[in-house]
């Protein structure tokens, strides 16, 4: 294999961005999906629509508005500058925040579907027996929606690995800081270095295949797909 140091750097950066993004998404996506699955609030439809928006917007459009919002003249940018954090675009943190927004529906929606599928009676029975809401969530909801968590993790991770338009716009293609694999492949193609592009795309393909294969085979023994 002829992977250069820059290619390896891009791969490593991608793994870091995607792992951190997935972790954050599970942290905020779980309560959000739970609320959406249980609430009768009239804001529910609006929230569902907002969560789904990144599916519709072309990535470069989303990236452009994030750039404006988080940049020196943007509302978020001025806020972060006042807090002494500087501006977020073209940094690792900015890349992660953009990825969180972009991959949000891919984590929230599978969780939401899994939560819907849990029968109300089970939860009510637990409550009658005196279990507190948090206990119910951790001992009943989470085990019952295991497959939902697995799909959410896989989709969130995979979608972040594959993103391009947003990271190119918000990240700025800076070596070792914001140059992820998809952008590095784009660089090779722009330079007409098709051989290097093929190799890196091949590595990405094998890596993704193996990750998905491991996850799915670990689930096979655990009744994945029955629920």
């Amino acid at each position: 294999m002829g992977l250069s140091a820059e290619d390896v750097g891009a791969l490593w950066l991608t793994v870091k961005v995607a792992s951190l993004t997935t972790f954050i998404l599970l942290l905020i996506g779980t309560p959000l999906a739970w609320w959406l699955s249980q609430t009768q609030s009239r804001w529910k439809t609006i929230c569902n629509t907002l969560v789904a928006l990144p599916l519709v917007l072309p990535p470069s459009v989303l990236g452009f508005y994030l750039l404006l919002l988080m940049g020196t003249h943007g509302f978020v940018g001025q806020l972060t500058t006042k807090l002494g954090l500087g501006t977020l675009p073209f940094t690792f943190a900015g890349l992660v925040i953009a990825s969180v927004l972009y991959s949000l529906p891919f984590v929230v929606q599978p969780l939401q579907t899994a939560f819907y599928a849990i029968e109300k009676e089970v939860l009510e029975a637990a409550a009658t027996l005196g279990a507190r809401p948090l206990r119910i969530f951790f001992s009943i909801v989470m085990p019952l929606s295991r497959s939902g968590f697995v799909s959410a993790t896989i989709l969130g991770f995979a979608h972040t690995v594959g993103e391009f338009g947003v990271v190119l716009m918000v990240g700025g293609n800076i070596p070792d800081k914001t140059r992820v694999v998809s952008v590095q492949i784009y660089n090779h193609v722009e330079a007409l270095e098709y051989q290097q592009a093929h190799e890196l795309a091949g590595v990405l393909l094998v890596f993704s295949f193996l990750v998905l294969l491991i996850v799915y085979s670990s689930l096979k023994s655990n009744s994945f797909g029955q629920r």
């Binding site: 750039l67 675009p89 190119l168 700025g172």
Partner: peptide, 11 residues
């Protein structure tokens, strides 16, 4: 793209 990035604080 670079122009919009530079005008929004790219380093």
């Amino acid at each position: 793209k670079f122009v919009s990035q530079i005008e929004n604080g790219a380093p």
